[in-house]
Amino acid sequence: MEREPLDIIWRKERRWVASVLLAHMPPGADLEDLLQEVALALVRHTDEVRSRDNFRPWLRTVTLNIARGAHRQEQSSLRRKERSLDPEAREVADQRPLREQEAKKARQATANTLKKIEELPPKHREILLLRCVNGLSQKRIAKILGLPETTVESRLARARRKLRATLSTVQAVPVHDEGQPHDQ
């Protein structure tokens, strides 16, 4: 593996990790808490990564598991306020103090983003956020998701159409479900 300090790697990857969380986390979950859990998992389990090439898919799997865990917690009717983050996570993942104004803005933006994509299936949300918000190339997305580039293209095209259809109040464009020849 490349000898790059883990915190440097985290800084490079954390924004798309946030996008994956946004795409898969339950509506009531706290993005910051989940990011801290991913950071903790990264520190604890990095040794499991065998090569640099596998790192991003591995980090995505870890992120997905944490988002799914949040779903499970919600399903087991644990109230979010009662859910306390693993104390060790507090030690590992420092949260730089956010200025109140800044935090409010970011949380509002999170709510707006979730509102915009809530009607989309998670796989479409994820691909759309990775491309549009994080600016990752289709090639890089294909590597992270472990999909052929053609599938990434068709899924992204479909996600765009669904987003437009969902947010459009004037336009009435029929939204077909899965099964188009491009999606694999």
């Binding site: 593996m1 985290w10 993005l31 990264l42 990095t46 420092d94 970011a106």
Partner: peptide, 30 residues
């Protein structure tokens, strides 16, 4: 898409405030 990009960028910027503590992260370093 432009609207999603604007809100989404703000939202994921929350990640910039989550740091690994160097004490634990640095020695592993792959």
């Amino acid at each position: 898409e432009a609207e999603l990009r604007r809100d989404g960028k703000h939202a994921v910027s929350l990640a910039d405030h989550i740091e690994l503590t160097s004490e634990i992260s640095a020695p592993r370093n792959f």
